[in-house]
């Protein structure tokens, strides 16, 4: 290693140091925000998606049409535009409602806004994936449960959801990876998640090729860990199924 390279490597480590003037703590705080928003949005999206999928399959005609409008619009418009629209609409409507009830305006924390906005987007995609998963459950299983007189909530909990898990997992895994990457879009409206933190760190220090690769490594760490864990989960969900390869 030549002298110049040694200095460059040392300064890269200094820049990534946890305590100031290093930016390591800023990046890790950004990573924490990203993970929290991704988890929250995915959870909210799952709640919406599960209701949406059952609504689309078993709901009345009006429910079905409204859900079709929701999933079509959300999937046709860029996430960034939806985030902007929902960001203004969500805070605006909430404050309007609070004012009309005679309460003061509130400043909603950016993390909550991010979770709600990304959750609504995730919900549309998860509705479609979960609907596909439910459709792939053998009809005989559901009919048998109905014939036994099982109430519909018990049927969903005991039969449909356990059987659809294996079918829906690959699609849901993709959506989880999308959720982690979509948190980066919140950088555009100024949330200090990982991408924004990286932008600030590199804009201040001009060390673009230190911070961007470091942040990319963090994102890759999330996605590779998730892929590994989801692989285990899928194996567990497919227990007791016959291997199609024979």
């Amino acid at each position: 290693m030549s002298g110049v390279e040694a200095i460059a490597a040392a300064s890269a480590l200094d820049l990534l140091a946890l305590s100031p003037p290093g930016w390591g703590a800023t990046l890790l705080a950004g990573l924490g925000n990203s993970v929290i928003i991704a988890l929250g949005a995915y959870g909210l999206g799952f709640a919406i998606g599960l209701c949406g999928a059952f609504g689309k399959l078993y709901g009345g005609p009006i429910t079905r049409d409204l859900l079709a409008v929701y999933t079509t619009i959300v999937r046709a418009v860029p996430e960034l535009v939806l985030i902007l629209i929902l960001f203004y609409a969500f805070t605006g409507l909430l404050n309007q409602a609070l004012l009309s009830w005679g309460m003061d305006r509130v400043q909603i924390s950016p993390i909550i806004t991010g979770i709600v906005v990304l959750g609504v987007v995730q919900g549309a995609y998860q509705t479609e994936v979960l609907r596909g998963g439910i459709l792939a459950v053998p009809a005989g299983q559901i009919e048998a449960a109905r014939a036994m007189g099982m109430p519909s909530v018990t049927l969903a909990r005991r039969i449909t959801i356990p059987l659809m898990t294996a079918n829906a997992l690959p699609g849901m895994a993709n959506l989880w990876l999308n959720a982690t990457k979509d948190t980066a879009l919140l950088a555009v409206i100024g949330f200090s998640e990982l991408t924004k933190a990286t932008y600030q760190a590199s804009a201040t220090t001009k060390a673009f090729f230190v911070f961007y690769p470091a942040a990319m490594a963090l994102y890759l760490l999330i996605s590779l860990t998730s892929t590994f864990l989801i692989g285990r989960l899928e194996k567990w969900a497919r227990r007791g199924q016959r291997d199609v390869r024979g």
Partner: peptide, 23 residues
């Protein structure tokens, strides 16, 4: 493929524009 699919597109765009643009 892993790097492109595992990192946000926004970050790739910024790395190219700000990083290479300053290099």
């Amino acid at each position: 493929c892993t790097v492109i699919r595992g990192t946000p597109l926004l970050m790739q765009i910024w790395l190219l524009y700000y990083g290479l643009g300053s290099l």
